[in-house]
Simulated assay, not measured.
Amino acid sequence: MGVIIVIPARYESRRFPGKPLVELKGASGKARTLLQRTYDVGVQVGGVDDVIVATDDERIADHARAFGGKVVMTSRECRNGTERCAEVLAKLPAAPDLLVNLQGDAPLTPPHFVTALIDEIGDMAVATPVLRCDEETIGRFREDRANGTVGGTTAVMANDMRALYFSKEVIPYSDKAAADLPPIYHHVGLYAYTAAAIGRYTSFDVGTLETHEGLEQLRFLENGIPVRCVEVKDDNQLFWEVNNPIDVERVEQALAKRGIE
């Protein structure tokens, strides 16, 4: 079947209830929902066979269908987007070569991030993008932490770009001045995996690291499944996700700067 994109979307978010249906104003002031903006990213990716919204909420499903999106209903028992993708996979008539999890809170994700994963996953079972942080992004991470807000995720990798760890903290730690900091990478909430990798994922129990960090991808690392990090670039434009209500204004500013309606 090739490649499909699944956009997991749930209404009952602890940090931001109803997040997929929040409206974000574009460059001209026209508002569109977070879910629709994310779906638009998915349909712009070349060489993909299908784009599916996966949700357990009829409000989200009705909205997706209203703008022409394809929907697969999933159960309320899904604890994260990967488990929701697994339920979609089980309902497909045939397994795709790759399933891409395009999380529904990242409307600034350029389509080429997805293409990079598809092109570079190689013989690995899981791949995810990382973006080198500029000083403004690092400053936002630290501002959020100082205010007690859990937001974006950082990643550290081995020399071969296999993930060593993902964290809601800013890692690696350094007490050096800003000019002497080691590279800090923003993990973009996007995954490509084989059907076999998703099957193995759901066979594992939730581990300690996943529980405490609240990061689904740590289940792969805790069980010895390597994750390839693919470095991507975004033309020096600020990348940000909608993790908390405060991020709406930040993303709207980025949409305006990029001229995105």
Rank of each mutant, 00 (worst) to 15 (best):
P129L: 08
P129T: 06
P129G: 14
P129Q: 08
V130F: 14
V130Y: 15
L131V: 07
R132L: 03
R132M: 08
R132T: 06
D134F: 03
D134E: 03
D134R: 05
D134G: 12
D134T: 04
E135A: 09
E135V: 08
E135L: 07
E136T: 14
E136A: 15
E136M: 13
T137Q: 11
T137E: 14
I138M: 02
I138R: 04
I138E: 05
I138N: 00
G139P: 04
G139Y: 01
R140A: 07
R140T: 12
R140V: 05
R140S: 05
F141E: 13
F141P: 09
R142C: 05
R142F: 04
R142M: 12
R142Y: 04
R142S: 12
R142I: 02
E143M: 12
E143P: 00
E143N: 11
D144T: 09
R145F: 04
R145V: 09
R145W: 05
A146Q: 06
A146G: 07
A146Y: 00
A146P: 00
N147I: 08
N147E: 12
N147G: 10
G148P: 08
G148I: 14
T149V: 15
T149W: 07
V150K: 15
V150G: 10
V150I: 14
G151W: 03
G151L: 11
G151V: 11
G152F: 01
G152M: 11
T153K: 14
T153V: 15
T154L: 01
T154A: 00
T154E: 04
A155S: 03
A155E: 03
A155T: 12
A155Q: 01
A155R: 04
A155Y: 12
V156M: 10
V156W: 00
V156Y: 01
M157A: 01
M157P: 09
M157F: 10
M157D: 00
M157N: 03
A158Q: 00
A158S: 01
A158L: 05
A158H: 02
A158I: 01
N159A: 01
N159F: 11
N159D: 07
N159G: 04
D160H: 03
D160Q: 07
M161R: 09
M161G: 02
R162G: 10
R162T: 15
A163F: 03
A163D: 06
A163L: 15
L164Y: 01
L164E: 00
L164C: 04
L164Q: 01
L164K: 10
Y165W: 05
Y165Q: 08
Y165L: 13
F166Q: 05
F166N: 03
S167A: 15
S167G: 14
S167K: 13
S167M: 06
K168Q: 14
K168V: 07
K168L: 08
K168I: 10
K168S: 13
E169R: 07
E169T: 10
E169Q: 11
E169Y: 06
